[in-house]
Design a protein around this nucleic acid. Structure first.
Lengths: 203, 203, 203, 203
DNA sequence: CGTTAACCGAGACGGTACGTCTGGTCTTTAA
DNA sequence: TTAAAGACCAGACGTACCGTCTCGGTTAACG
């Protein structure tokens, strides 16, 4: 008992990073389909067993990769919701656009949902991956929802405003364009979006 | 001398339908991963070559299947945007929820993006599939965007309203919940959504 | 209505030749496996149906091709068996060596049985092809066996000589080298062969 | 330290035997064409990959099968070449006749070259298979050529006798009948053959 | 200091689907 | 009736890749 007393050879912690790096590179180079776990292991200088001991499935692996890529966007209420939201959504947009080139030989003017779509599909296939993805997004989004709540209490937003729904509208529009309609996303669109959402449609 | 006069044995048009039916059934029974092109062909009573002559890839096939499933939601402006939008979004919601059970042994209370995610991934993998998917959605959505435009001209919506953005907000929220956060979608949520979008956040 | 009176479109007699030419070329370029009936038809400017109406099987077709390639070696007894045999075997040898390059990217010093082996295999697979091949060879060989018989009656060969066996020994040695051991065949070998067969091993 | 220290999971040596057994049985049951690599693997209780790791092609596989069937015919010079040769050729004849039934629904009185022809064709198609076949026969035949050489030195054969050519004549005649003319081979023919080859045709 | 437990690299293995190819047949329209 | 064109059926081929397993060998903590 005592402290715990892990027995046996300890895991090579560096290996985790090397594997995620290699897998990430391959993902960016070739996309989900055209990359293989085998090659990721080889490129990381690691045996396949070592990789599978950590992530039991290709889907689990790539979700881990994406989770690591997800940059922590700093969120804090400044007293100006519009500015805060615009900054946040632009950060997200940058991230999404970076993942767009992936998985297809980036033909000019040709947009793809790339990695994001693969993550969504992986989540749809394995319940535990789905849970992980949702947890990841919930964590990320909670901060913004809180920010919206603060703005509401502060009087910047109407009292009836539903922060969760408002956030869904904003983030949703971005992902919808990315995953479904394939239309471009940029700062100009973010502006139209924030304006539309904050001002509302009816008077 | 007339149009032309196709030569050679004409394609069996019935086969198309039989294949799509079989593939659709399999997709619903087993999901993308666990179904095979081979079995779809067999079940349709068709040789694999016949199938591959029409859809060069499993991904192409399933997109065709989904395109056919897409039910034509009738859209017409009644003079009451809120009602029209609510009806439309509820129809979409029903369709999405039907596709949710797919691709995972529907554990109770466990939501999945199912087929929709697979289609998004297929679109991300093949440029031509992506184009087809986008065309499909563009066609479907154009009607609603037109409806919103009519409502704006009619004075139901503010003059500054951006119909495209407004639609992205609405549809986007649904797909975002489906594909990313995995949260449930139902009539109650649709209400909150329409209210939030129409009323706006800032007074 | 008389005896018959062929009705309908008459067969294109030229087509036979064009098909055999095309098939022969392909056979020489690529070999049995790597050539397809489809391509032969295309290259002959003929529909597959037309080809199959004439030769019901790929194997039948190539046997027809080979039969046509088989050059008629003139055989007549001159009074000098050794000379006659040597001439005949050299002609055969030339033919075999011509068929050797076939079916493999003629690496230097690398001998192959090429077409001959494929014909043998085709004969082994279909009884009727086998019969055709045997008939072809029987016809060709009968002349030489007759020649040997004449030489025997003429006193050039011993009375006990068995012409059939003698011929088997000579032709057999060539084909054995071609099909089995892959060793080279040339005029020098033909000389050794004729000498060995005529002179015998014991006293 | 010694030679090395194999790494990785060792090959299942038993699998080789099981595969060759299964493939051999199928070959005998159905013949080359009508048997499939897939079924051989299944019947051997082995994954197709395992089979293809060992033999990269159906042709490679069947040559391996035949090589194993090839029974080691014991050869030793007894002082009586005629007897030795007769015994040896009869053994070969038995082997060839056993392989004759293969690959065609043995119609009575209908002879086929069966497996032997397929092996010859396989050798013609792949350079490496050809090399293997030739090596196999070279090994087998070397003993007999040596025996003939001994008989020559012993005075049983004329000093001018060319052992290699003599052997080609004998074995060649058998294979010629098998592969080309399709005529029967039996003990009586072997006798005529040995007599003809040893006694010679001229005086 | 030896035992033991967990790790590591390498690579074979089972399973399974993919997409391709080809042999031969069938169905059209035109000659 | 034959021709050309091309779709169709059937089924094998060889490849790819996932995730598991089996080796020999290493690296700790425990007794």
């Amino acid at each position: 008992m005592g402290t715990s007393g892990r027995r046996g050879r300890p895991r090579d912690e560096e290996a985790d990073a090397r594997i995620l790096d290699a897998a990430g590179d391959l993902l960016l180079e070739r996309g989900y389909d055209r990359m293989s776990v085998d090659e990721a292991a080889t490129r990381a200088g690691v045996a396949k067993t070592t990789l599978y001991r950590r992530w039991p499935t290709k889907d689990h692996l790539i979700v881990a990769v994406v989770a690591r890529i997800q940059d922590a966007v700093p969120v804090a209420y400044s007293g100006d919701v519009r500015a805060d939201l615009t900054a946040y959504l632009n950060a997200i947009t940058d991230g999404l656009n970076r993942m767009r080139q992936v998985a297809r030989p980036a033909t000019a003017g040709d947009m793809s949902a790339g990695l994001v779509a693969e993550v969504a599909a992986a989540a749809a296939r394995h319940a535990d991956v789905g849970a992980a993805v949702q947890a990841m997004f919930t964590r990320r989004n909670a901060l913004v929802v809180t920010l919206l709540e603060q703005a509401r209490l502060h009087g910047e937003l109407r009292a009836e405003t539903d922060p969760e729904v408002l956030f869904d509208q904003l983030a949703g529009a971005l992902y919808y364009r990315l995953l479904v309609t394939g239309r471009p996303i940029d700062a100009a669109y973010v502006d139209r979006l924030v304006t539309g959402a904050l001002d509302g449609a009816t008077s």
